[in-house]
Design a protein around this nucleic acid. Structure first.
Length: 419
RNA sequence: GCGAAAUUGGUGAAGUGGUUAACACGCCGGAUUGUGGCUCCGGUAUGCGUGGGUUCGAUUCCCACAUUUCGCCCCA
């Protein structure tokens, strides 16, 4: 038997319907915020994802799906959405005529070569949005608001944790301060953090092992290293968030490791019973990325949310997702003599907007009744040769069990009145 | 890349070094001479993740691998 690949999963049935609903919410809100839908290729040149990410982590060597195609090209399945959008922006030279900023959203499959665990698969879906071409605080606000309102519309209570890394100068000063601070304490840090001090000191702040230690709690705060301009900007953003009544918590330990991030970074959390404090998504400003990928210096901000985690959160929080798993009418025929009429009525009702099913397996009446119940049919239409002589069928309300004879030509009208 | 636990039918699962692998749900058929969902009866794993090994004999013990779940690393 051929089975699915490690870390992949099938979506079908009720789960599929739930996702269609969530997709419709996402589409709807992106339309209001005027973000255009974008699809970029699943695979791109490996270099696209390796650049910018830098040497800091083993993402590149360890966690991407890389392969060489038949033409000898180095290909990588996209591990995230931003790089593809930025490539699209640069390749089409959209910066040449930027009368308006570029606002796009995607909702697509991503791939990471990871060891699967709770909330992490090798193939997964991310919904994200990118706002390219404005360094204004209103762009930051647009992205954060879009992320927040999406969750609100879905019925999830979320908290947005925010922090600011400041501009490049502020960020570098902070990094330097962190290294200076942690170096004398190195022997009191966990093994992983000793490693991080060299590779990516900002990530020490995320350490789970040392989370409660004084060394971490007394570490330099990002906010103390923001220059005046960066600090003003950060404070202004918070005022705007207050104005729009978007709840946020400041988190001085929230950082993003990659070099192209600056100013605001944020993550979205939900407290879910039985699951705990769940990170659903995050984002930030990445003014350095487009230049890093051979484009001009164009400011941008974006976010992405883990779709599968969001589904998990909705489910665990017992949020009701309106799905229709019932059908309007089940058309039953007693014998082969009525089969043609059944086929005709089925199509006719479908074309008039009713969700219809009939018996494809020649089950006989008893089996057809069972099917109708399994499919949660609201109405049954039962055909027998005697009634058909006078062009009539039996219509049974499957809730009240009341039954009426209805002329075939009046079926649409009858069902319109009753459904 | 590292670690822990798990893997029995369509589903939930019980079980044992030795003839026919419980039970329940589901599904199929019948009682029911074409309007059912109740009830009753019958049928539903030549098989216990895959491959080796130990043994007279393994689903049951051992090893390897795969997959699942949960951690670590990492999290763009």
């Amino acid at each position: 038997m051929i089975t699915k690949q490690k870390g992949t999963y099938d979506i079908a049935g009720v789960e599929g319907k739930k996702r269609e609903y969530v997709n419709s919410i996402i589409r709807g809100i992106c339309e209001k915020y005027n973000y255009d839908y974008i699809e970029t290729p699943v695979f791109e040149a490996t270099e696209l994802f390796h650049r910018g990410v830098g040497e800091t982590s083993d993402l590149v060597s360890k966690e991407t799906y890389d392969f060489t195609d038949r033409g000898g090209r180095n290909i990588t399945l996209r591990p995230e959405g931003t790089a593809g959008v930025v490539r699209y922006f640069i390749e089409n030279k959209l910066y040449g005529n930027m009368t308006e900023p570029i606002k796009v959203f995607y909702n697509e499959k991503m791939y990471r070569y990871e060891r699967p665990q709770s909330g992490r698969n090798r193939e997964f879906t991310q919904f994200g949005a990118e706002f390219i071409g404005s360094d204004d605080i209103l762009a930051d606000l647009d992205i954060i608001s879009l992320a927040y309102q999406t969750y609100t519309l879905l019925g999830l209570d979320v908290v947005i944790k925010i922090n600011s890394l400041g501009d490049t100068e502020s960020r570098n000063n902070y990094r330097k301060a962190l290294i200076e601070y942690f170096t004398p304490h190195i022997n009191n840090l966990c093994e992983d953090c000793k490693e991080r001090l060299n590779k990516n000191p900002l990530r020490i702040l995320d350490c789970k092992v040392d989370a409660s230690s004084d060394i971490l709690n007394n570490a330099p705060k990002t906010i103390d290293y923001l220059n005046k301009e960066s600090l003003d900007r950060y404070n202004k953003l918070k005022e705007y968030l207050d104005l729009l009544e978007i709840p946020y918590e400041e988190d001085q330990k929230l950082v993003r490791g990659l070099d192209y991030y600056n100013h605001v970074v944020f993550e979205i959390y939900a407290d879910i019973p039985n699951v705990g404090h769940l990170a659903l998504g995050g984002g930030g400003r990445y003014n350095g990325l487009i230049k890093e990928l051979d484009g001009p210096e164009v400011p941008a901000v974006g976010f992405a949310m883990g779709y599968d985690r969001t589904m998990l959160a909705l489910s665990e929080a017992n949020i009701n997702i309106p799905i229709n798993d019932s059908i309007d009418v089940y058309i039953m025929y007693v014998s082969d003599d009525e089969k043609e009429t059944a086929a005709y009525i089925t199509q006719n009702l479908r074309l008039n907007g009713f969700i219809c099913e009939t018996d494809y397996l020649n089950k006989g009446l008893k089996g057809e009744f069972k099917s109708a119940d399994r499919l949660k049919a609201k109405y049954l239409i039962i055909l027998n040769d005697k009634d058909l002589e006078s062009n009539e069928v039996n219509v049974k309300d499957n809730t009240t069990k009341e039954e009426e004879k209805v002329n075939i030509n009046d079926l649409v009208e009858y069902l319109d009145m009753h459904l």
